[in-house]
Amino acid sequence: MNRWVVAGALVAVFLAAGIASLFVGTPKDVSDLKNFPGGKVRVSGQLVEYGREGDYIYLILRGRDGFTIRAVVPYDTVVRLAGPSFQFSGEVVVEGFYNPATKTLNITTILKGCHSAYYAPVKS
């Protein structure tokens, strides 16, 4: 009887972990952050603009309904990830900590949308 209780508990734990991984692994749209209380989040949005301010790179990301946020990441982190000639483009997927009061996401991981820029050789 005890074995069945332990087995049932293990099945319940693995089932809960599997269901949770579906929600954690799927990025929210930037527009979903309008009602998000803040905290750790994985988010996807269209890149509107990006640039450098001091030691940080900022990204302006837009959601499907036009809601925008500012996402920031240390410049050194981006250089380590994509090299000194990096580009952001199209859809960007990032993880980080969102502050709804400032509509700012402090990026901890860049999952999509950042790559090394490369240049074609000059023809003589």
Rank of each mutant, 00 (worst) to 15 (best):
R3Q: 14
R3H: 12
R3N: 14
W4Y: 10
V5L: 14
V5E: 10
V6H: 03
G8A: 05
G8I: 05
A9F: 06
A9G: 13
L10R: 05
L10C: 11
L10F: 10
V11C: 05
V11P: 02
A12T: 13
A12K: 01
V13Y: 02
V13H: 06
V13L: 15
F14T: 09
F14D: 07
F14L: 15
F14P: 10
F14I: 10
L15H: 03
A16S: 13
A16M: 10
A17K: 06
G18N: 01
A20L: 14
L22R: 15
L22A: 09
F23E: 09
V24E: 11
G25S: 10
P27E: 01
K28E: 08
K28W: 06
K28D: 14
D29W: 00
V30N: 00
D32H: 09
L33H: 02
L33Q: 02
L33K: 03
K34M: 10
K34G: 06
K34Y: 07
F36T: 04
F36G: 02
F36R: 03
P37I: 08
G38V: 02
G38L: 03
G38E: 13
G39F: 03
G39C: 05
G39V: 06
K40W: 11
V41M: 06
V41A: 04
R42T: 12
V43F: 04
S44E: 13
G45C: 06
G45K: 01
G45E: 14
G45S: 04
G45F: 03
Q46G: 15
Q46D: 13
V48G: 05
E49R: 10
E49T: 07
Y50M: 10
G51P: 06
G51A: 08
R52F: 02
E53D: 14
E53A: 15
G54Q: 01
D55A: 14
D55T: 15
D55P: 11
D55E: 14
Y56P: 09
Y56W: 14
I57C: 03
Y58L: 08
L59D: 00
I60F: 08
I60T: 15
L61M: 10
L61W: 02
R62H: 07
R62A: 15
R64L: 09
R64V: 09
G66C: 00
F67M: 05
T68Q: 13
A71V: 08
V73L: 07
P74E: 15
P74C: 02
D76L: 07
V78R: 00
V79E: 13
R80F: 04
L81Y: 01
L81S: 01
G83K: 02
S85I: 10
S85L: 12
Q87R: 12
Q87F: 09
Q87H: 06
S89C: 08
G90R: 05
G90D: 01
V93L: 05
V94L: 05
E95M: 07
G96A: 02
G96K: 00
G96S: 05
Y98W: 03
Y98V: 06
Y98Q: 02
N99Y: 01
N99S: 08
A101R: 12
A101L: 11
T102R: 03
K103H: 08
T104E: 04
T104P: 12
I107S: 00
I110G: 00
I110H: 01
I110E: 02
L111G: 08
G113T: 05
G113H: 03
C114N: 08
H115G: 13
H115M: 14
S116E: 12
A117P: 12
A117H: 13
P121H: 04
V122W: 05
V122Y: 06
V122F: 06
K123T: 12
